[in-house]
């Protein structure tokens, strides 16, 4: 046993140099001003950006919930397929991940734009004429000259981008846990009188809990700190913490002390959120992929 710990040394060195030390540097900047003196001014200033933090958490939470709702039945269905079919379907789930992240998000831009593919498709289907007509019938206050649906540069587009990009990270951990559930465990619940809803709430969800909490972590964390998705799909009105932090380091407001403080606060918030999901999921002590 003693000797095995040596195998971890390379990673420990890596971790110290590239994770622990940078974290300490971030913390140092967060609590100092440009002159290098200790200050709490940066943290105080973050209060002004509370709406951005709130929006980030809200949109990430929305995306996480949508991912969970979409992924849970999909993962269950996957886990019940024959092994050979499971492999093919899993590959299809992961396929979008092989494509460049930027490219995928650009694709959504061209789809969602005001004169983008979707709106042109709706126009060809005379959908706008139909909506205008109905609005005309319903009352004077409703617009009757719509020529497109506003989709790009909305909060909805940001959530869509998050769901699209991070859905596989919800499906995979759920699937990993669900494959281990024996069909006879579900049959036993049925046998003891559980209907479909009761099977879900009393057996399937509790047994999938480790996968659910891993999936939430893996979707929520990147969603809450993303800046590409909000920049490309959200326009100026849907700035997230990620964008804000980027601005402090690479943007006009160049203030890496404030940027560090924001990163630190975001990290604490994320850790708190994860603490909540992990204690609620792990109370039965089932060993999962977490």
């Amino acid at each position: 046993m003693r000797r095995d710990t040596r195998l971890a040394y390379p990673y420990v060195v890596w971790m110290v140099i590239f994770i622990a030390v940078p974290l300490l540097i971030v913390a140092y900047f967060a609590f100092t001003n440009k002159a290098g003196q200790f200050t709490l001014e940066n943290l105080r200033q973050i209060g002004e950006y509370a709406p951005v933090f709130l929006r980030s958490l809200l949109l990430a939470a929305r995306a996480t919930v949508i991912c969970l709702v979409l992924a849970f039945p999909a993962a269950w269905w996957l886990s019940r397929l024959r092994v050979r079919h499971q492999r093919i379907m899993l590959m299809l789930v992961m396929l979008p991940m092989w494509m460049n992240f930027l490219l995928r998000t650009y694709a959504w831009m061209t789809l969602l734009e005001n004169n983008g593919l979707l709106n042109r498709l709706f126009g060809a289907m005379h959908l706008f004429d139909l909506v205008n007509g109905i609005n005309g019938l319903l009352g004077a206050s409703l617009p009757t000259n719509i020529t497109y649906f506003p989709m790009i540069n909305t909060a909805g587009a940001v959530v869509l981008g998050m769901v699209y990009n991070y859905l596989p990270y919800m499906i995979l951990p759920l699937y990993t846990i669900m494959v281990k559930i024996e069909p006879s465990e579900i049959e036993a619940a049925q046998d003891l009188g559980a209907n479909t809803r009761q099977i879900l709430t009393r057996v399937l969800i509790p047994l999938s809990m480790p996968g659910i909490s891993t999936g939430i972590t893996m979707v929520f964390v990147p969603s809450v700190s993303t800046f590409i998705i909000s920049r490309m799909l959200g326009g100026g009105g849907n700035m997230l913490v990620g964008d804000l932090i980027e601005l402090q380091f690479l943007g006009n407001s160049y203030n890496y002390n404030l940027g560090s403080a924001m990163s630190l606060v975001l990290m604490v918030i994320v850790l708190l959120c994860m603490g909540v999901t992990n204690t609620s999921g792990g109370e039965d002590g089932i060993e999962g992929v977490v």
């Binding site: 024996e182 006879s184 049959e187 619940a189 049925q190 046998d191 009188g193 209907n195 509790p206 089932i286």
Partner: peptide, 20 residues
């Protein structure tokens, strides 16, 4: 009739106890 409506209970081959 679905299994949950039958007055029958089963002891499964590999027990199928609920691990949680």
């Amino acid at each position: 009739l679905p299994p949950y409506k039958r007055h029958v209970n089963t002891v499964f081959q590999k027990y199928a106890l609920f691990p949680h």
